[in-house]
Nucleic acid binder design. Sequence first.
DNA 1: CATTGTTTTCAATCATTTCTGAAATTCCGG
DNA 2: CCGGAATTTCAGAAATGATTGAAAACAATG
Lengths: 194, 194
Amino acid sequence: MASESRKNAPTTPAVLRQAQDRYIAAWGQMGAAWGISRTMAEVHALLYITGQPMNTDEIMDRLQISRGNASMSVRALLDWGIVSRTHKRGDRKEYYTAEKDVWSLFRAIVRERMKREVDPLIASLFEIRDLTSLESASRGAAPSPEDKQALLEHNKRLDAMLSFFQTLDRLGQRFASPQGRGLEVAATLLGKVS
Amino acid sequence: MASESRKNAPTTPAVLRQAQDRYIAAWGQMGAAWGISRTMAEVHALLYITGQPMNTDEIMDRLQISRGNASMSVRALLDWGIVSRTHKRGDRKEYYTAEKDVWSLFRAIVRERMKREVDPLIASLFEIRDLTSLESASRGAAPSPEDKQALLEHNKRLDAMLSFFQTLDRLGQRFASPQGRGLEVAATLLGKVS
DNA sequence: CATTGTTTTCAATCATTTCTGAAATTCCGG
DNA sequence: CCGGAATTTCAGAAATGATTGAAAACAATG
């Protein structure tokens, strides 16, 4: 009935194809909500759910995106460390494969987001904290009592946030550490008390 | 030297003002990276870091945003449950205050993101899983052996993802549960083995 | 080292999200 | 209820982010 014969995979059954498409859409949406470009998430979804190494043209065809877009999305996934290059003998094209292990995948994601967003934030918070450390805050001017109080309270709020993120950071490191810690962490957490 | 006399707070010292602005900027940026509108994050940052109840006009002035934007951002923060309304006697305006406790704040954020993004994803994954459960997959057509194999492997990948998110969900519930569990969880986690 | 096939880059375009501001609505005190 | 003050809504404008496509760079082959 349907036109169903792609050159690569030998005739994907319709249900499978449909399930893949739905998975890709769901994953793309989730990615978008978390600040990752929809297409990048979709490319990952495609590679993950098919489990097959794919080249740029296959990705373009399947996702209906341009060459440039495919190239950039794949590159970003490589940078995140959740997709890797492979080659096929006798083929000049590059093939891309998604990390198969779900826990590794999320360890990589956590590691990367920590590095890109949390660590810089912590650094900023430290800098901001320095602005109002009592020494530097009172350079030059006369600090009135109520101003001092205000600074004190400001510092308390800032410190609370800072120490939260430091905890988060340690937690993230623990989770993201290469050797199967993520799983262990979650297991411990759910196992206890539960 | 500088023009420094707002009507509300009795002359915020320059360093404090600067520290607040930097905090607001840092928080806005972080929010943006995680898929929250920059302004919404900034409004939260302002309310949190000043510790003061503020009305719409004060927020507008301080952040240089329109009334509409201020209104919508505040509303979103209320929906997230991390800002609450207050009133001042003899003043018809509404005042808004940020949750002061950092751990409560993040519990609320986790709760909300779980509800909005993770739970729907899990629901989708279940639906997709149903598409390829062996019964429904083979409705009508003859399932060739290799197709069967493909379906089987697809299901394995899907299930892996699904069970990761189920774990995450339980973890999230644990963390987000109202009574100080978040703190406990993190502490346990870091305390042990460390 | 020229040829051909492949990937990358990037300015221009397109799409989406965010923001504005004024009109509509709601809310109060009298 | 009325009048004014405050808030919300929402269509259009502005800003931001994503995508394209063609040209440049690169890589493998003979």
